[in-house]
Every structure is written in structure tokens, then in C-alpha cells.
Amino acid sequence: MQTEKIFDTLTKKFGNDVTPILEAAPSEPFILVKADKIYDVCLFLRDNSELDFDYMMCLTGVHQKPDLGVVYHLYSIKHKHKIVLKTFVSIDAPNVPTVERIWRSADWHEREAWDMYGINFEGHHNLIRILCPYDWEGFPLRKDYVTPEEYHGMRVPY
């Protein structure tokens, strides 16, 4: 299915909650979703037989000042089409519903986004740090992150 057609289907279903943004090539067109609707949109994308997005390629946390965001790259193996979803939340209350129950691959991706950016995925069954140690402080990939001076008695800077 063409990207425009997917966007039409989504806007018909969800109205004002989604905003398609077509960008010039080579940048991929994406669709902006309100944070609290992301679970419904994703469930619709997976279960609709014409869309059938059964493969989540990538879930990325981003920090585009001043907001935090989550980018979903979805792919349909059957129809061979792709879509990019984006959602932005304020850095003070970064709450996004989890899509872990839709695609199991989202489990570790969301844990990583929590680890690196501190995005709180509501409803995730085990939202703990995955790469950094469990007692690490701060969210390293935020743009205003400062490397700690010391960790467990070991000096960190060169």
C-alpha cells in the first residue's frame, strides 16, 4: 500500500489524533501521533488486514530539544510496506503507553529508551535499566547529560 493511502486510512480512523507529515525524499514521511493514543494506533496498524504491520523494525528514543520523543519504524512482511510513527512528550512528564503487548520486540527497545532517555513506558511489565548498571544515575543520551565524576569509587573521566 502507498504511504499516502496508509495515512488516509489512519486519519479517517483517528481524526485529529494523528497528523501526517510528508517530507521530501530522501527523508521518510512520518505520522505524528498524540502520546496517549499510541497504543490504539499501533494495535489498529497491526490488526487491520490491509495494513498488517507485523514486524517492528526499530523503536528509538530521541531528544529533540526541548522535548523527548519516540520513533517507531514498522514494516509489513506480507505487504512489504513501511511506516514511521513519531510521538513527542514533554521532558517533565515523559509518559508514553507501552506497545510491548503488540510486538514482543518492543520489550527490550523500551527498556533501552528508558535507560538512555528516561521515557516512562506506562504499563511495561519490567521497566528497569538494561545497558547501564541498575544503580546508575541520570539518563546518558539526554543532551544535557554530564558524565559523573565517580562511580563506586572508580574515577570516570580520563
Binding site: M56, M57, W103, R104, S105
Partner: peptide, 10 residues
């Protein structure tokens, strides 16, 4: 590992 589980896990 069944194929549908593999796809769901990415």
C-alpha cells in the same frame, strides 16, 4: 523457534 514467534520478536 516457530516463525510467527520469531517475527513478533523482530
Amino acid at each position: 523457534l516457530p516463525a510467527d514467534v520469531a517475527i513478533n520478536f523482530g
